[in-house]
Amino acid sequence: MKAAPQAPRHNWTVPDPPYDDTVLAQTMQQINELAAEINYRSEDETFVHLADLTHAAFVIARELSRPRNSSGCIQHPGAPIDPAAPGGPQCLFCQGQARRQQTGPPTVAIRPSRPVPRYERHRMPRPPMPPGNG
Rank of each mutant, 00 (worst) to 15 (best):
G72W: 09
P80A: 07
G87C: 02
R111N: 02
P112S: 10
I60A: 11
Q75W: 05
H76E: 07
P77K: 06
R66D: 00
P115T: 04
P89K: 06
Q75T: 14
R62A: 14
F93P: 03
F93Y: 14
T103Y: 05
Q102A: 13
N69K: 06
I74S: 13
G88M: 06
G104E: 08
A85R: 07
L64T: 10
A85S: 12
G78W: 07
G88E: 07
T103L: 13
S71T: 12
G87T: 01
G88I: 09
A79R: 02
S70Y: 01
S71A: 15
A79S: 14
A61K: 14
V108L: 04
G96D: 11
R68H: 10
P115I: 01
Q101M: 13
G72S: 11
P86I: 00
P105K: 08
H76N: 15
F93I: 15
E63D: 14
R100Y: 01
F93C: 02
I60S: 09
L64E: 10
P115N: 02
Q102K: 12
R68W: 01
R66K: 15
R100V: 04
R100W: 01
G104H: 08
P77E: 09
Q90F: 00
P115G: 00
I74F: 05
P83G: 04
A98S: 06
S71L: 09
I60E: 09
I81A: 07
P83V: 11
G87A: 02
I60P: 09
A61R: 14
R100F: 02
S65N: 13
A79D: 10
R100T: 08
H76C: 12
T103P: 00
G72H: 11
V108N: 03
I81M: 11
F93W: 12
C94S: 10
V108W: 03
V108K: 08
E63I: 07
Q97F: 10
Q75N: 14
V59M: 15
A61P: 10
I81V: 15
A84P: 00
C91T: 01
P67L: 13
G88K: 03
G88N: 04
Q102M: 06
I74N: 09
C73S: 15
L92W: 05
